[in-house]
Design a protein around this nucleic acid. Structure first.
Lengths: 360, 360
DNA sequence: CTGAAAGCGCTTACAG
DNA sequence: CTGAAAGCGCTTACAG
């Protein structure tokens, strides 16, 4: 057993050893007020000697600043959200803020629980993925008294501030790409909508995609939904299988995520369906796996890290400047999306042997 | 602007409204002590009416229990560590503990910074991936006064408790599999050791792999190290390229992670090298992408979620029972690893056209 | 440049 | 079953 039984050293211990008041120790630790060089080094020595680590929770209580920033994500296992968390931490950490990370499993009810739990820690700001919340969550967020930033989205009516992009626009961009290649029989792959988890941003991409199809005079009936949210390689593979069974003449496919898109490509591999010669496939999210796979995956790219960093910068500005709430400040930041054309999509003319796919 | 300017309701507000003392409100909220049904409902009504959320930081200060559990991971973008975090949260969350998640970018110096920052929040326990730490980190961990659990490893001398498996054994298991298939010219893929980040667990797997090779009378010279930690699809593809250039007669390859193994398979695809007919490839970690890819990837599986859950259970036991530190308690939990044989590895006899690979 | 007093919002022990 | 007092470890005013 290695737990030392002596209680953690407190500021009082430092005071005694250095022969100064708590006020002076506090000043040495913080950035406020002047301390003479001699006093400072005396205090520093005492701090090091006894291994004093200030209790930040106690500090929060008196200063009324927790230096926590709550971050609510759908999941901890998606590298894009991980990048966002790292981007946020990179900016906020050096400034002394600590992210308090939670996840909702794509369930609004669980998001509500997480928000409630985090509020008990009195975060100085709240960052939450998405703009769809339960009624109770919305109320809590509104009444939190701290800045609220909704990310990975571009809500019409942000609670406070939003940093992201339009998922609907991303879907439309995907559709435009496939249409521009000459494809007419175009499909999309997503998760079922009746599951416990819901990916509202994925739904928006699908909706944007479908509407662009319809506007171009094409059918949007080939929207395959399979398995629960979150989508995955496996889900993409299964959905692609269903699609191929149902519409062997499909020419192009958009999956709501690169993960399912890569799964779809793999399913084509297994069935001997050539990508992009027989079917063009594209995804969303610009995941590393899509960059490396064969053929490399056409995708809609979002700068996940940047969403985190930009959010951090806005927060830092808000938190450090003594800006009055109510003053004007950013409302919606649109970081945009980018089409990355790679090997998995090609012109319709390449699609040979249409309909001859059954023997693949 | 939606931030309400009225300060957050406090326990005092509830007291006044309900006409009781703080003690009673505290009792209603907590689990200690009896409160009459009428008083309880009176208090509850007041709480809901003003939307009171107890300040847990203040509570921590008086109770000397933060209900935080620190979790230090190498990165936030690896789904295996994400699974561990989710597993831990799943067990600890319902019991009222909140994970405080940080990441080190595989750098010991950054791990030290993260541990220091977390210690300021007075966590009730500390969970850290790996058993290699800076001197200062080790001292802090020892003196933290709370349980320390090192995960994803099986250290010879755990600081306190460890929950994981032997990475060296995982490497040996991989070697044994490839050897049993009849391969003699066997290689391994990892990241360079001189980078800023270091994956000590990956190194151990590589070391175990190499030693099993040597014990079987085989050469361990084909250990290709390319790019910095963390490994990735891209890194795996590049390392495989280097390997193929250097040793076109290689028969089997172990990559320290499924991510690089899948990258290696993709590189083979690009070069027209058949897997497993010409080269067998296996990885580690049992990532979803390996399960789905073509051919599906042979791997060493670790139950990442279970590491988190098991850690949570041990902690719960330790934290809730009034066990004296110093009493005997679990030291090292070995969850073991499992070989998953799939399509990407095959017997040597399948390896046709050895050496004819240059035109691939 | 330094310090004594008050208080942040809770819980712990002690009474009754 | 309920409450008055003290205190957790800091920081914020306010003095000097």
């Amino acid at each position: 057993m290695t737990q030392s039984e002596k209680r953690k050293p407190t500021m009082r211990d430092v005071c005694k050893l250095a022969g100064v008041s708590a006020m002076t120790v506090s000043r040495v630790l913080g950035t406020t007020g002047k301390v003479s060089p001699e006093t400072r080094s005396k205090v520093m020595r005492a701090i090091e000697q006894i291994g004093y680590v200030p209790d930040q929770n106690a500090g929060s209580l008196s200063s009324n600043k927790s230096h926590f920033v709550a971050l609510v994500l759908p999941t901890l296992t998606n590298s894009n959200f991980g990048d966002t968390a790292e981007g946020l931490t990179e900016v906020l950490g050096p400034a002394g803020y600590q992210p308090l990370i939670g996840y909702s499993r794509y369930r609004l009810s669980q998001e509500e629980d997480v928000i409630r739990a985090m509020l008990a820690r009195r975060p100085d700001a709240i960052v939450v993925a998405g703009s769809e919340h339960t009624k109770a969550s919305t109320v809590m967020l509104h009444q939190s008294g701290v800045p609220v930033i909704e990310i990975w989205d571009r809500p019409k009516h942000p609670i406070d501030i939003s940093v992201g992009y339009s998922n609907e626009e991303a879907g439309r961009l995907a559709a435009r790409h496939l249409i521009s290649l000459g494809h007419r029989r175009i499909a999309a792959l997503g998760a079922i909508e009746s599951g416990e988890g819901r990916d509202f941003r994925g739904e928006q991409r699908l909706a944007g995609f479908a509407s662009a199809l319809v506007e171009a005079g094409l059918s949007d009936e080939l929207i395959i939904r399979e398995d629960e949210t979150p989508v995955s390689f496996t889900q993409g593979a299964r959905a692609m299988g269903t699609l191929l069974d149902r519409a062997p003449d499909v020419e192009a496919v958009f999956a709501v995520s690169d993960l399912s898109a890569v799964g779809a490509v793999m399913e084509c591999n297994r069935r001997g369906v050539a990508v992009p010669d027989q079917v063009s496939i594209m995804g969303f999210g610009n995941f590393e796996v899509g960059r490396q796979c064969v053929p490399s995956l056409t995708t809609i790219s979002v700068d996940a890290q940047m969403i985190g960093r930009k959010t951090g910068e806005i927060l830092l500005e808000l938190l450090t400047s003594k800006q009055q709430p109510g003053q004007d400040r950013p409302a919606s930041i649109d970081l945009g999306v980018e089409l990355c054309v790679r090997g998995s999509t090609g012109p319709r003319s390449q699609n040979i042997m249409q309909g001859d796919r059954s023997n693949g």
